[in-house]
Design a protein around this nucleic acid. Structure first.
Lengths: 135, 135
DNA sequence: TGATTATCCTATTAAATCTATAGGGTAATA
DNA sequence: TATTACCCTATAGATTTAATAGGATAATCA
């Protein structure tokens, strides 16, 4: 199941991408428009800023804004930052690989075999979709 | 992330599919061979039996066995039984559809749009892979 | 028939994760 | 220098997942 963190993050990003200009938008405005708990959204936007997807401005007239063109923000990046690994098991993860401690041999593991295919198909979607494709 | 329930269930199913004959295999044997908590596995096998994927036999010489040919057990069935909906959000689920209460309009929702594609790609994998493809 | 075997079933606990809130700090603006 | 709005950490509440406990039931076989 997709976490609310990711869901809210995606909604916030598309809201920002839909702005006419790149002027900062206040957290409160995004939260209100997208029906999101403001404080929760605050921490999500902070994460997105730290990753270099968003920029921010303090003080009056401040807020968050996209730092890149929506077509330069692939869903792989967004998903990994918000949701974590795209793979459903660590042993098929590209960016977060980890050996399963209960599985003696990856090469003959059915779970590994199946989840590798699932990962590849998901990856293809995320790679071929940018923020621009969602608006 | 894939739940351990699903992971263990898949391992148990492939173990059964790898048996030469269709003789019942005891829970304890599967649990030992696949490094799974026996009691936890017990509840998983029970679920698989209730869904009609496995058969069981009580008493001496009893155990669990596949009730169908591995090539007649698609991963869509297995995943839905063990993991639940294939979709990552209820609003794009075929078998477990539910409207999001925080989202006023599905048609313009970015999350819906993206997750629909992800669901379709996952579904294609699960539909085209049976238990026979995992062994 | 009765002892043994192994599944069947419910309830409960323990652990982990997710979601949300609280409360104040910091920097920019006018 | 007052106001605005982001910045940051900690924590609590809720939910889900994983595992355990303990016995009931049914089949087998001597």
């Amino acid at each position: 199941m997709l976490s609310k963190k990711t869901k809210y993050g995606l909604k916030a990003l598309t809201f920002l991408a839909n702005q006419k200009d790149r002027e900062p938008v206040q957290i409160s405005e995004i939260a209100k428009h997208e029906n999101i708990s403001q404080k929760f959204l605050e921490s999500i936007l902070l994460t997105l800023r730290r990753t270099g997807i968003l920029g921010s401005k303090k003080g009056k007239g401040g807020g968050y804004y996209l730092i890149k063109d929506p077509s330069d923000i692939p869903m792989t990046t967004v998903m990994r930052v918000l949701e974590g690994p795209i793979a459903m098991v660590p042993c098929v993860s590209l960016n977060f690989y980890e050996k399963c401690d209960d599985c003696p041999n990856e090469d003959v593991c059915a779970v590994n075999k199946l989840m590798l295919k699932v990962r590849d198909s998901a990856l293809e979607i995320y790679r071929n979709n940018t923020l621009a494709d969602l608006i």
